[in-house]
Design a protein around this nucleic acid. Structure first.
Lengths: 137, 137
DNA sequence: GTACATGCAAAGGGTTTGCAAACGG
DNA sequence: CCGTTTGCAAACCCTTTGCATGTAC
């Protein structure tokens, strides 16, 4: 097999038992430029090695998520999407193409903390998605 | 039956055929202080009149949603929650009690428009939820 | 009266799980 | 080796749907 991906190394460092299936799934996510759903990860994984079942994809993705190696997103489509854990960012979803654009906005980050504080809460987590249409003018 | 709720009047104004089931479902939502899920609406409705099936609850809620009488929320729990359409607001979810607190923040509203614009998009919709823990100090 | 709404139960999509066989460290 | 992981298929949860019956306007 080719050289290890960043994600595979991370898995080993966390002490996860690395099976061929997990390596391939980690590799698929590593190489993904998009935010693939489970079915898509499964498809890409079986292209590399057909000996992978959808159950293993579900189990591995959850394992990686619990190990903070992956982040699961729920964009309200009734199925989960995954991406590699990285710097914090928000998502804007193009409602015409489905494309997901990542962005960060310092003001927004500060503001949600302030809002939670104003309500008497410590902010533990949040969810922010913008849905927009590309401007043509 | 008791006097009509605001929601029932709204349904009639929109020309919806008002069956007993729809009246009761509208009434349940009208009286709800929380953001009930379908199962909860069903339970409360059947307490008033057991002749209501879960299928009708699903159908009526969707009907009301399409008529902009209700808003459906997906707080990432794998099931929908509903509330009466009203002034725009966001939600903060207490991760310990599950309680949902509504809030508005003008700055936040303006900011998300600006962010979308910066990325070259017209903002069509958005989703913002804060998850927090009540501060005790 | 007639088009529409309902109840029931079956089907649907995404996800999880029990079990015996295969496997990693 | 031995506990963990896998594949398979069945089970799960929430939601939708086909069909015969019942009902609002």
């Amino acid at each position: 097999m080719a050289k290890l991906t960043q994600l595979e190394r991370l898995c080993e460092k966390k002490g996860l038992k690395m099976t061929d299936q997990r390596r391939i799934i980690a590799r698929v996510i590593s190489n993904a430029e998009d935010h693939p759903d489970v079915e898509t990860v499964y498809r890409r994984a079986t292209e590399i090695d057909p000996r992978i079942s959808i159950a293993t994809v579900y189990r591995s993705l959850k394992l990686f998520e619990d190990a903070n190696i992956l982040v699961r997103h729920d964009f309200g489509e009734g199925r989960a999407r995954y991406e590699e854990t990285g710097e914090h960012h928000e998502h804007l979803i193009d409602i015409e193409s489905g494309e997901v654009i990542e962005f960060v906005d310092a003001e927004l980050e500060a503001l949600k903390e302030r809002v939670a504080a104003r309500l008497g809460y410590d902010l533990i987590d949040h969810r922010l998605e913008l849905y927009g249409r590309k401007r043509r003018d």
